[in-house]
Design a protein around this nucleic acid. Structure first.
Lengths: 341, 341
DNA sequence: TTGTAGGCGTTATCAC
DNA sequence: GTGATAACGCCTACAA
């Protein structure tokens, strides 16, 4: 175990003062060229690395941001992390990932840890308990950004970046209307997730805007948002007398299940039934009939959140707080909704 | 911006010395109960949080570990991160994620950063350039663990945790032999990834062990490891006069492509063709015929890597270096390889 | 252009 | 049981 080589070692070896070594890094312009070169070569030779800990202890801003998500297994959460990591890297920041614990006690501990590390800021996906979280963050004076926070809810105290799911629902249904469909089904999951609810609202809007009654929206609920549940819905649909000609599913997995069941029953997609999923999971494009899907820009949410965090210090507190960015989802149109030409 | 509340503020407010406050946290047993309670209440009231930076500056071990992977988009890499995060959390450690930059310069910078943060250790997936990486890490004195490092290569200087892909290949083919298949196809990708090569070797071993010639292994190569490539292979196979009755694919996507193509041509899976994929991606279990897949325990690799890192200090350098854990993959058997009863 | 000194928040070692 | 004090490594005024 060799003892850590510090700035003093470099100074001694290069025969300059520690102040000069520091200047070589922090204000290279004010130090003589030959001195700088000499110092740099010693740095290289000794393998000196600065101590970030000492820097922030001294009062400089930390270069770590934390990303707190629900569950890394969830592809959307992962996209948030990816986007944040990429943006952070470009900004010279490191990212710490935390999965949000279920119980409040764990969450508090996790939070305390983040504060102990003196992270520059926290990017977090909200939950029911996010109020207590916000209070804690504000108390600790740590800036934070809410990710995928539904914009219609009461104004959050921190700033946030959300996805406009109402627009998403509108987009999907508008697309189906454009293709000539008049009876459309909306397949949702069991829990009333705000995001799904908003897509439903958007779907209704699209219908009324086009002069149709919302009755034309056949709504079906599933016990789970899985392929198996989708299969069940598919089977249910087969026996409908007034079967919709198009479906907007809350989830790609649901859509894929429906797809499998319909095809096995001999129906053609999209001719007998057009399908639009949501999330644009990796496999959607490769399904037996490539699936049209509403793509929610998770990576962009993560990246934007980082930018918001970085912009914070340049704004007054009032401006930072409550600042919201709303991102628009886009529709990846594939064969499952495209009538044969 | 209120100034950070430090240990001195707590001490003053609680009317004790800073040493006592420190003791309350670090050796609660040696401080009088009433004093401790008083201090704790002040801590609570003032919202005091310890400074991790000051701690490690003082010489205590850092509580951050870094996970360096290739690409967070890759599900296997993600599994590594998940496993590491979970294990780290349980061990009271925080994890920092870095995606490995393509060019050497970026990689060097990334590395330098990690050293600056004085991370407790680094978990990394190896590449061609991993030698220079190891040299750099050793120079900086940062312990590291290689993840998914193929164990048959020359002994690494750090310790590592790998997956026994030879065993994996053996497992898959053994399973097919058990089901009565005698001509088996091996579908591999374009690049000669060590992991895939080892699975091929394992497949051959299984055949010879069972007393068959390796000729029975029909080997096909794809230009990519995607569903589309799998479809192509499926089409190619249709015209084979001596078509294998079972396929082991390097990848679930390949297997799913083959599956789609064969079914569209009217063949039955598994009756006319049994299929085994690899990676056990989320969708494998939900395919139109649920796919048997070789599951590589990525999460376990990540978790084990953390444990190896934690065990390091208790071992002498000699023991730590070169220590290797090899994990065994398992076969998730589903209908695609299970003959109807 | 370079050197010097003070302090950031902790912990550990010693007196009391 | 408790209090004072010296590090840890760095940055930054300010003095030379």
């Amino acid at each position: 175990m060799k003892p850590r080589v510090g700035i003093v070692d470099v100074a001694r070896e290069a025969d300059v003062s520690i102040g000069t070594v520091s200047n070589v890094f922090n204000r290279p312009d004010i130090v003589a060229v030959h001195t700088r070169l000499r110092v740099l070569s010693v740095v290289e030779r000794l393998g000196y690395v600065r101590s970030e800990n000492a820097r922030v202890l001294r009062g400089l801003p930390s270069r770590i941001i934390a990303v707190v998500v629900h569950d890394l297994t969830n592809p959307f959460d992962m996209a948030l992390v990816q986007g944040a990591e990429e943006a952070a890297r470009k900004a010279g920041l490191a990212v710490m990932v935390c999965t949000r614990a279920q119980n409040a006690a764990d969450e508090a501990r996790c939070l305390a840890r983040l504060a102990e590390y003196e992270v520059r800021g926290v990017l977090i996906t909200p939950t029911g308990s996010s109020d207590s979280f916000k209070a804690a963050m504000e108390r600790a004076g740590v800036p934070f950004v809410l990710m995928d926070h539904d914009g219609r809810q009461r104004r959050p105290s921190g700033c946030s970046v959300a996805i406009d799911d109402v627009a998403g629902g509108r987009l999907a249904v508008q697309h189906l209307l454009d293709r000539g469909h008049r009876t459309i089904g909306f397949i949702s999951g069991p829990q009333h997730l705000p995001q799904v609810e908003q897509r439903r609202a958007g779907a209704r809007e699209a219908l009324t805007q086009a002069g149709h009654s919302t009755i034309a929206l056949t709504e079906l609920t599933c016990p789970a948002m899985t392929v198996a549940a989708g299969r069940n819905v598919g089977r249910r649909l087969l026996s409908f007398q007034n079967r919709p000609t198009a479906l907007f599913c809350a989830n790609d997995l649901l859509a894929l299940g429906v797809l499998q069941e319909l095809r096995e029953a001999g129906l053609r997609v999209p001719d007998d039934m057009a399908l639009v999923g949501c999330d644009d999971i990796e496999y959607a494009a490769s399904a037996s009939v490539p699936l049209t899907s509403l793509r929610r820009p998770g990576r962009l949410v993560g990246a934007t959140a980082v930018q918001l965090l970085e912009a914070a210090p340049t704004l007054s507190d009032g401006e930072h707080d409550g600042r919201q960015v709303i991102l628009t989802p886009e529709l990846a149109v594939r064969r499952s909704s495209r009538r044969e030409t």
